[in-house]
Each structure stands twice: as C-alpha cells, then as structure tokens.
Amino acid sequence: MRWFDLSESDRTQTRELSRIADDVSERIIEAFYAHLLSDQTAARHFRGADHIARVKQGQSRYFRELISADVDDSYIADRRRIGSIHERTGVTPTLYIGSYAYYLNKLALEVQQQMPEAPEKAFTLILSLFKIAHFDMALALETYVDAREETIKARERELSELPTPVLQLRPGLLLIPVVGTLDSYRARTLTVQLLEGIKEHRARAVVLDITGVAAVDSAVANHLIQSMAAARLMGAHSVLTGLSAEVAQSLVKVGVTGEALNTAGDLQRGIQLAENLLKG
C-alpha cells in the first residue's frame, strides 16, 4: 500500500463522494454496461438479463467500497477474490483494465461536473480515486499471476510425477528412457524405479538412455552416478547412452569424469555393451 502512496487523506477525499454516490453510481454503471455489452468479446461474459442485473448490483457495491471502504485486509481479500473470479471466467487483463479505464474516466467526468465551484478539489479527489483504482487493479492482476503460477506449478508437479517406463528388452536386460528435467525429486523417483525394476525383473544389466533429458549438468550427472551406483549394489551393471558430443565435452570440462559413468556412443551400442555385460 505504501508503494501506492495511499493514505488516510486519500480516503477522506474520496469519501466526499459518498453524498452523491448513489446517484452517480447508477448513471455510471448504466453507461458502463451499455459500453461493455456493445463489445462482442465483453458481452460474451454475460448470460442473460438476470446475470447482468446481478453483476450490476455487485458493481454498485464495488463502487461504494471504492470510494468509502477502509482499505484493510478484508478489502484486499475481497479484491483478490474478484480477481480470481475474473481469471477463472476468462476475463483477460486487457478487458479488465480497459473496462476499469472506461469506468474511471466516466467517474472523473462526473466528479468534475459535480464540483464546478471547486475544480482544484475535484482534481485532488480524482487523483485519490486513481490511486485506489490502481491499487485495486494491482491486486486483481497479482491474483491473475498467482493463479497462472499455480497452474504452472501443478503442471510441473504432474510432469515430474510422470512415471519413467522400465522396459525389459530380454530377460535380465532393462532399458530406461529418461525424458524431461532431472530435478532432485525426479532423480529420486528414477533411482527407486530403477532399483524396483532390477528387483522385479531380476535384471543384471540396465541401459539408461538420456537423449530426452533437457539439460545435463553436474547436478544431473551426480543423480545419474548415484542411481547407477545403487544399481551396481543391487547386482546390475548399467550403461548410459544418449549423451550428445557437446554435452559430453561440457561435462568433462566441468570435471565429471568418464570413469564414474559407464557410457556408450548410442543406444544400439549401449544395448550391445549391456548384452556383453550380461554374458560376462
């Protein structure tokens, strides 16, 4: 709130409007909805006259709060709630801010007309209104962003919980294609799946193919080394395939040595190598 320079004096200013609020709000809201419904994209958000009447009622409460409510936690919570409704129903930020701008303009004009004898006072009042309106918009947009962040995080969780398939190529030989991002959570899951796969299939050799891993750095290499070491303890040799030339070079420069990782040039050779390990 400090960022918006909102103070008690702004509140005192805008409360001046309370006297004329009901009269003014009705006119503005009528004009506002006429404007909204004239736009096809905006009109899509309304289902019939009942719905419009209800939203208009909400709008008039919103208006009263805009000029006179205490800007406290419950105010903020309410504005955020409105933001989340907008986000869920697909009201775009453009539509939201555009509507607010129209609304604010109408309101400013009203204020100016209502106070012809005190233009300076009208001006400071309008400034105070602008501050509060921007604060409102910021809250609503924060809610939009938060909601999207939540969606992204949920997707990331879903992705990282995607099971890694453990394929049996022939008795004793497993192929595990690793795809996506190997963060520490997924790396742990990979290790568990690898070890369970070894146990279940009584595998003695495993080919780990990382062609589909988005980024290989020392942290990912570390995860792989640990998984392969754990596999070794379970009695299975593992072969790593799918390292591109560039990745191999960077890993060596970073200091990951080839000894810790049993690698093969491509999948085919990896499988051959694993078969040799099975025989040997």
Partner: peptide, 21 residues
C-alpha cells in the same frame, strides 16, 4: 560454435542450480 554454446549453457546451468539449491 556449438561446443561453446554447450559450454555456456552448462556454465549457466551450474550457476543457476547453485541459486536454486
């Protein structure tokens, strides 16, 4: 060149990973 691109990407990876951890 591509090898240097990979080195740069790896350097960024290491530094960014440190920030996360």
């Amino acid at each position: 060149g591509r090898p240097d691109q990979a080195l740069i990407a790896t350097a960024i990876s290491e530094l960014a990973r440190n920030i996360v951890v």
